[in-house]
Amino acid sequence: MPKWHYGGDVDVSLQALRCFLAVAEDLHFTQAAERLGMTQPAVSKTIRRLEGVLGAPLFIRSRQYVELTDTGLSLLPVATRMLADFDDWARDLRAVRAEATRVLSVGYHSSVEPALTNAIEAGFRRLRPGWSVRMRIVDWADPARGVLEGTLRTALLRLPVPGQERLDLEVLRRDARYVALPDGHRLLDRDGVRLADLKDEEFVALPTASGPLRAFWLAADRFGRPPRIAAEVDNSEDFFQNIQSGRGVGMLTESSTRVYRRPGVHYRLVEDAEPSELAVVWERDGTDPIVRDFVRACLEAADPR
């Protein structure tokens, strides 16, 4: 892990600063841990180690609240600036390396069909001869993280995503939402269902840390009360395993019903659910001409007229 050195006895890792900044922004250790993809005890341990290195407490902790100390308040702008500077430097380094190797790193959600990604890659190669695309599946719970942190230059994602306000995007298409049902489910005798038919169901859900993405796939704003959660998952295998076992139901895109064919799992159109938007996303206000050409290839592949 890269480290910043402040002198002979102060040696602070970037991970420690990221933990500090997340807790300082949320003023909540559990929420910060979810955002970081860590456990709450791991974040607490990292903060305690940082406080030990600095020789001063950074937070006042109680059962009711978390509050920054004077030392924490003074560290906040320093940590923000240092992490931003490092992330900018790392992003520039990756851009230089990409230019040298002529490889564009792109994230994609597992529900994106190969026919679309193949068409995008072919269009990009026409626009940028000699370049290739390295596709990487993104994390279900925090799919935009790679773009926000600079490890990916762009991504094909299902909206909404955590951190979307820090991204630019182009919507490529809108897909109907379906519900996945197990063998023997009471709704299998219907060709389509409505959200009201699902209000008493138990759902297979994304982790709480996925925020707006989890809420969208639970249609949480349409039931008038929090949906019942049977299980939380962060990958397709666990999602379908829970459906097959009859633990709950789950919503997914129309394209996913073609990508994922599993015994014991049946799909029905949710007739009144808002469509899912597939978008290409990139760093806000980004001016990278390579990324711009990739976006153009995405738009042409999504609407090949």
Rank of each mutant, 00 (worst) to 15 (best):
Arg126Ile: 11
Arg126Met: 13
Leu156Glu: 00
Gly184His: 06
Met135Asp: 01
Arg158Asp: 13
Val147Ser: 05
Ala122Met: 06
Leu157Val: 15
Gly184Lys: 08
Gly146His: 00
Gly130Ser: 11
Val133Gly: 07
Pro143Met: 05
Ala176Met: 08
Pro160Cys: 01
Gly163Phe: 04
Val161His: 09
Trp140Leu: 13
Arg166Lys: 13
Leu159Arg: 12
Arg126Asn: 12
Asp142Leu: 14
Ala155Asp: 07
Asp142Phe: 11
Thr154Pro: 01
Gly130Phe: 09
Thr151Ala: 07
Val179Cys: 10
Pro182Met: 08
Arg174Ile: 10
Arg174Cys: 14
Gly163Arg: 05
Arg125Ala: 15
Gly150Phe: 05
Arg153Ala: 10
His185Val: 11
Asp139Arg: 14
Val133Arg: 01
Gly184Phe: 10
Thr151Gln: 04
Pro160Ser: 03
Ala144Asp: 11
Arg153Phe: 01
Ala180Thr: 10
Gly146Asn: 00
Asp175Arg: 09
Leu159Ser: 07
Ala155Leu: 05
Glu121Lys: 06
Gly130Pro: 09
Arg173Lys: 13
Val138Thr: 15
Pro143Thr: 07
Gly146Ala: 07
Leu159Ile: 01
Glu165Trp: 09
Arg158Thr: 14
Arg134Gly: 04
Glu170Tyr: 03
Trp131Gln: 04
His185Phe: 04
Phe124Ser: 00
Asp175Gln: 14
Ala144Tyr: 09
Ile137Cys: 01
Arg136Pro: 01
Arg126Glu: 15
Arg126Cys: 14
Leu148Ala: 00
Arg128Thr: 03
Leu157Gln: 10
Gly163Cys: 07
Pro182Trp: 08
Gly146Ile: 03
Val133Gln: 07
Arg186Lys: 13
Arg173Pro: 04
Pro162Arg: 08
Arg134Met: 02
Ala141Pro: 04
Asp168Tyr: 02
Leu167Thr: 08
Phe124Pro: 02
Ala155Ser: 14
Arg158Leu: 15
Asp142Met: 12
Val179Lys: 04
Trp140Arg: 06
Arg125Gly: 06
Arg126Asp: 15
Pro160Trp: 04
Leu127Tyr: 07
Val147Ala: 00
Trp140Pro: 02
Arg128Ala: 12
Arg158Ala: 11
Val171Gln: 10
Arg125Val: 15
Gly130Lys: 05
Leu157Pro: 12
Pro182Glu: 10
Pro162Asp: 07
Gln164Ala: 15
Ala141Met: 02
Arg125Trp: 10
Arg158Met: 14
Asp142Ala: 11
Gln164Asn: 11
Arg125Met: 14
Gly130Trp: 09
Glu121His: 00
Arg166Pro: 02
Gly184Asp: 08
Arg136Val: 12
Glu149Tyr: 02
Leu156Trp: 03
Gly163Lys: 09
Leu157Tyr: 12
His185Met: 06
Arg128Ile: 02
Leu172Thr: 06
Pro162Ala: 08
Leu172Gln: 06
Ala176Gln: 13
Val179Gly: 09
Leu148Asn: 00
Ala176Trp: 05
Asp183Phe: 06
Gly130Val: 11
Leu159Pro: 04
Glu170Met: 02
Tyr178Arg: 00
Glu149Pro: 02
Leu167Tyr: 06
Ala144Val: 11
Ala141Leu: 04
Asp139Ile: 11
Pro162Met: 02
His185Glu: 09
